[in-house]
Design a protein around this nucleic acid. Sequence first.
DNA 1: CTCATCTATTTAAACGTTTAAATGAAGTAT
DNA 2: ATACTTCATTTAAACGTTTAAATAGATGAG
Lengths: 310, 310
Amino acid sequence: MATIKDVAQLAGVSFATVSYVLNDSMPVSEATRNKVLAAVTKLGYQPHRQGRNLQRQRTLTIGVLLPQANLLCEVDLATWLLEATNAATSAGYSLLLQPADSQARGDLADGWISFGTPLDPQLPQVWALAPPFDQPAVLCDAAFAAQRAVETLTHSGMRRIGLITLPRSIPGSARWYLGYRRALRRAGLGFDPGLVVEPAANRFHDGVAAYETLAASENDYDGLIVCGHQLATGVVMVDHAKVPVIVSHSSSQRGISGFRWPTELWAHTLVRKLLQQLDGAAIAHRTWLNPSLVIGSLGFKEDLDGFNYV
Amino acid sequence: MATIKDVAQLAGVSFATVSYVLNDSMPVSEATRNKVLAAVTKLGYQPHRQGRNLQRQRTLTIGVLLPQANLLCEVDLATWLLEATNAATSAGYSLLLQPADSQARGDLADGWISFGTPLDPQLPQVWALAPPFDQPAVLCDAAFAAQRAVETLTHSGMRRIGLITLPRSIPGSARWYLGYRRALRRAGLGFDPGLVVEPAANRFHDGVAAYETLAASENDYDGLIVCGHQLATGVVMVDHAKVPVIVSHSSSQRGISGFRWPTELWAHTLVRKLLQQLDGAAIAHRTWLNPSLVIGSLGFKEDLDGFNYV
DNA sequence: CTCATCTATTTAAACGTTTAAATGAAGTAT
DNA sequence: ATACTTCATTTAAACGTTTAAATAGATGAG
């Protein structure tokens, strides 16, 4: 691998000059600049990160804290990571994965991000890994989704809207509930606790059970909202299609409305904001991103292409 | 952050001695060793990676090449990454994410890994990102899964086993087919092309369509194998439970047999092998890991805990 | 023609480590 | 006692950069 000295030698200048050209941190005559650039391209020189970092005290790396249990309910972590990687790479950075429960040196990366819903004050401390770092919070708003779902149903004349929530042990579950309550209030509808079912866990059969509980109760409902991918799958499989159903994720169920979560936008925004922050810019403490409702779609990716993120 | 010089000063020795203690690369008297270690713990010193790497030419980093499209069909990429991170961290390494189509300096990491099925020679070049590096190949064997599924059915007396494959555009699909054919041959059963359906794509409704195609044909089958999570979900939803069904992933369907893929083992093995290779050990070029069949399980994680990886 | 000013370039120190080579202090053989 | 080992420790160079400070060369004013 070519070093800066190789370039300097080939160009017939000192290696400091090469550095000045590459970072244009000092004025350099046009002639030498050209010589240097020629040498750089000829040798295919790329600066050595470790060396540069040592002096600059910048690692050109963004750390990602990975919790052992995936606390993300709304988006696919793999896609999130891929998009974050893309965003970082196009800014010349790399992503470094680190278990959230490990204690690595903080200066292993220039900045750290994690994801997930910050704690709702009402909830017990589940997100035990409360970021000790000052990461720019970019969040996808489940409350918005819930609200939008309720609005959609009420606009179609529904008045008694059931909710199968996420179990409260899951961070972010409260936001679903919050949005639901808020939307009801705004629509001037009363809140009936009998219409809300909280499953034991976020699994397929819990969704089935929750649905059956709701159906067996004397509470009649004319619309239903289901939170959580697993739960929704269960519900949809036993659903009798009596009332409109809106699930948290438009995935692979026919004719069911669901949300598309702006994973790419989320990851890109978070990375971009962090980089801005590293450059010393004061950034908004929180940015909310909203999912978009895909009405009665078949739910396949192709069907959603036309939709814009909010 | 404390540097090695701080430690040396506190311990009253030269910083070379500190280095020798920490790496025990030179004999050090018990007395000084203790002084140094005391200073280390007192200051909470951790060696600075960048500095160390510069000299050692080791980054203590493992690069992960991330393809833009997730080519993994059998395991969850997020879990894979998490486990790889854990494995790397416990060996003192970190994981660095890099888009497979980017051209970063190779020495950004000590070694590179990627995942996915290597090309079956029969297949067109879909895994366009053929690893240019000499990564230790650790692979989960879909052929084994297919074979095992057929064996399980034949042992129960089935003779005409249907197969809903993955579309051939998906890398690894060929291995399913391969295992199916091999097992039939070994069981002394003939191959009936009419029993094999290749869906157009790997989506929910393609599974439904494939199932209906098979059911509508005059080919009667007494057992069915379905490859792919999405496809299987579709099939299971419309299945009439006439014959035993084995799907590629035991996920969230009641009473259906499926496979558990050794994601953690895979990631750990791959990382470990890479590290061994970095240490100069000659390692097996390929290691196959086998998924384990979970018979008629409810498919929830709890049900699988008793199972051992093969 | 000399001195000061400005600009382009080089020299050298620094970043935090590792490690080869040099040093020093013992101990053992002559 | 002197020289040769052996062992523990220190000195200093090296890794690939950036950057402050020094230098050289040209330009302009007096």
